[in-house]
Design a protein around this nucleic acid. Structure first.
Lengths: 267, 267
DNA sequence: AAGTGGTCTAGACCACTAT
DNA sequence: TAGTGGTCTAGACCACTTT
């Protein structure tokens, strides 16, 4: 078995500032992250043991442990009981594209408008019935919306809702605020969970016309199936957004960034 | 201010099994997750205070704290100092599509083959030079690969590598194992970090022919820019994958699932 | 003032790995 | 056997919010 490069030396200048508002465990996380980012520790290297870190930075084992756990959660290191902590190499499979990009499209601005294109009662065909867990012929509400920011069409939304006169979901669901709340997690909601699926698609002629896009245009299509608290499907639909108006960006590996309470920020 | 629905009652049957291999904090995470999933706690509800949880489940404050932190990390609850812990509503913006789906395309199977379509030295034009941080005319290595699983073309990869005779990256980079290792995080790598960008695209005639796809076909295009340990770009390229051969799936909200050490699993 | 979450201590014991 | 990570205790003190 290959002997891993071991901890040559820690950044001797770095230490925990007890007067800082920043918690000790977070300072330690950032110290170790910087050590990895600057090449003091390379992929495969073994980190100093927890006991060594305790002594070096004058913190208790629980504080070191917390920093170690955070780094492991962030995918920076891997831990192996009885062996040690090791710096992980870059892993492309660990990358994730966050839907927050789509959220930002309209939820940050005050200039978002929703145009209701169509709302009507529709009898469920076999395909809809199967998805929503109802029987063919049951009534659903078919909704088509166009969301624009600053007057530019951003995305097009089609949705089949279960029609239930006992539940006032139709009115609430059609509002702008309902969609905004859905993305930002604010406001009331009767949804417990949802399954999402992302695919690439080519806009149909109708979609291209609505979205004021040149045809043919590539687009993202986000299919959603939402469930209520009884785990019954209540909404099936798609968000369609031209690729040129939405980019998913992410990073893998360690950059020279620091970690804050709310995530990772650029330096 | 609206009074939140408070903790009516915890699942009285649930308790921490001290003989279980499963740590106490993880058992507590799952107990609380199930409470949310089953509707005992609804979005907006306040959870029992940490002190109450300590007493109810006979664990120390640190153990409760750890469970609380995990649930907050998972997006199940939000915490507010001085006020309490509250169940978060479904937030579409919190959804993330993981590239592990692409990784599975070939890394799980033994039947993955890489066909090198082209490898040649290329003088950098203005566009390439800007991306790779070199000057126009500098030599780069242009590589085109086709990755197939079970004989079916899965994705097409084009890449510009910085040509550096001092660094044996060219040989290593061209191997199948290099790509596999890149996705799975195994093997040696000289990459420190990478920026990724996902867009939807329509296959060109050439791409459709190579990928044996009908034209026109929608595809995912994952642009990547990799950096070495000196933070210098060394590789710029694209993975192109027909949408019909790759779907990104994810969930938002709480399902009736349990959490394990490695993430979230279906029940 | 009382209650809440947030941090931290200084150990303890266990399971696992390497020598 | 020694060293490692993994869990856990039983408090302490602080900052913040609500009453």
């Amino acid at each position: 078995m290959k002997k891993p490069r071991s901890a040559a030396l820690l950044d001797r200048a770095a230490s925990i500032d007890r007067t800082s508002y920043e918690p000790a465990y977070m300072q330690l996380v950032n110290i170790l992250r910087r050590s990895v980012a600057s090449g003091v520790f390379r992929p495969g290297d073994q980190l100093p043991s927890e006991a060594q870190l305790c002594e070096r930075y004058s913190v208790s084992p629980m504080t070191v442990r917390r920093a170690i756990n955070l780094l492991a959660d962030q995918g920076v290191i891997s831990t192996a009981q009885g062996r040690g902590c090791f710096v992980k190499p870059v892993e492309l499979g660990a990358a994730a594209f966050h839907l927050a990009a789509l959220q930002d499209l309209f939820s940050d601005r005050e200039t978002t408008t929703v145009k209701l294109l169509e709302t009507r009662i529709l009898s469920a065909d076999e395909r809809i019935a199967r998805k929503l867990g109802i029987v063919v012929g049951d009534r659903t509400v078919y909704i088509r919306r166009l969301l624009s920011t600053d007057g530019v069409p951003a995305f097009y939304h089609r949705e089949y809702l279960i029609y239930d006169p006992k539940r006032p979901i139709v009115e609430a669901e059609m509002e702008v605020t309902a969609l905004r709340g859905l993305f930002s997690g604010t406001g009331e909601t009767i949804l417990k969970r949802g399954d999402l699926s992302l695919e690439a698609a080519i806009l149909t002629a109708d979609e291209a016309r609505l979205l004021k896009a040149t045809s043919p245009t590539a687009a993202f299509c986000i299919e959603h199936l939402f469930y209520d608290f009884d785990d019954c499907p209540i909404s099936w639909g798609w968000f369609i957004c031209p690729s040129e108006r939405l980019r998913f960006n992410t990073q893998v590996g360690i950059s020279g960034s620091i970690t804050t309470r709310s995530g990772v920020q650029e330096k």
